[in-house]
Amino acid sequence: MKKLILAFLSMVIWILLVWPFSSGDVDWHSIGIGVFASIIVGILFGNAFTDSPYKFFEIKRYFWLVYFVVVFVWSFLEASVDFAYRVLHPDLPIRPGIIKVKTKLKRKSGIAILANSIGFAPGAVSVEIVDGFLYIHMACIRYKDTDDATAVVVRRFERILARILE
């Protein structure tokens, strides 16, 4: 099962890479090589892929994924406009420091995606992760307390990721 899912994902990436539809009709040679290569990838790396493959078949997780993409893109725009303002302002209005937030996510993949998303939250980058706590460096700190900062920075990604992955 895991191997089939991984083979399917690598086939999608292969089709996006070679794009066999450009010359009017379908280029079957490229697709054949892609099927061959993705079966090999699936057999070799299927065991290291995921430990709960049945989650790929629950439709509602994909709707939450779409919602996550919307939230993520909005947060990304907000973060870069905010940072561009700080960089271009003559007084350089930054109050940097490292604060500590906590997360309720248990799975390693969830924590990894959460840390990556925090990298795109306004003015934040995760520095260290120690069992359930993330130390993040922020360019402009408004809340020093762990609970307040968690509510502002982590919560909006965490509640969606919990529904997608857990």
Binding site: F76, S80, F83, A84, R86, V87, L88, L92, H137
Partner: peptide
């Protein structure tokens, strides 16, 4: 790139290089 020059330390410069350049 302006942020990479203006900001004071490594961590802030990393953020400039991540947010603005990735955007």
């Amino acid at each position: 790139c302006v942020g990479l020059v203006r900001l004071p330390d490594l961590y802030n410069r990393l953020q400039a290089s991540l947010k603005c350049v990735a955007m």
